[in-house]
Amino acid sequence: MPVAPITCTRCAAPLPPEFLNTDQYRSCPKCRAPLKLRVFPALVNPPPPISPGRDLLEGGSSCFYHPAKAAEAICEGCGRFLCALCDIDFNGKHLCSSCLEIGKKKGRMPNLQNFRFRYDKIALNLSILPIILTVFTLITAPIAFFMCFYYWKSPPSLTTNSKSRFIWAGIISGIQILIWIMIFGRMLA
C-alpha cells in the first residue's frame, strides 16, 4: 500500500527511498540540506483501517451505542458491549469513548494527561525572588507558606515525583515570617 512520503524538514520536498536507513547524511534534492533518516516498520506497514463492525445476527449481543452492530468487546471501564468501531484499544485495555473521556477528566489515566500546573515552582519563586526587594516579603512570604500547605497534594510534574520545592519554599518563607514577627515584636517592645 502506498504511504505518505517522508519530506525534507526544511523545504517539504518529498525524499526518495534512497534516503531511508543510511548511516550517512544525504543532501535534500531540492534545498541541499543534509538529512539522515531512521525509519521503522510502522512506516512500511501502517495500521489497518478501522473496521466499521459486523452487522448483528439473530440471537447475538449488540453494541450499546450501535444496536445494529454485533458486540465484539466489553468495555473494561463500564462493562458495556462494544462493536469494533466503538472499541478503543488503550494501553492493551478495551474502553469505550465515554470511559476514556471520564478517565481523562478525573485524572485517573496518567497517559492522557497533557497539562499540569506547577504550584511548587510558584511557591518557591514566591519565597525567593521577592528577597531582592525585601519589603515585599511581608506579603509574599505568607502567601508562599499558605501555598505550600494548600497545594501539597496537587499533582507534581509527571517527570519528577518530588516535593522538595514545596519543602524549600516552606522553610524559606517560614524564616521570612519569623524575621518579620521579630521585627514587629521589637518595634512593639
Partner: peptide
C-alpha cells in the same frame, strides 16, 4: 513506540 514511523535529523 509502536506509532513512531521515523526519526529525521537535519544538520
Amino acid at each position: 513506540f509502536p506509532d513512531i514511523q521515523a526519526f529525521v535529523i537535519r544538520r
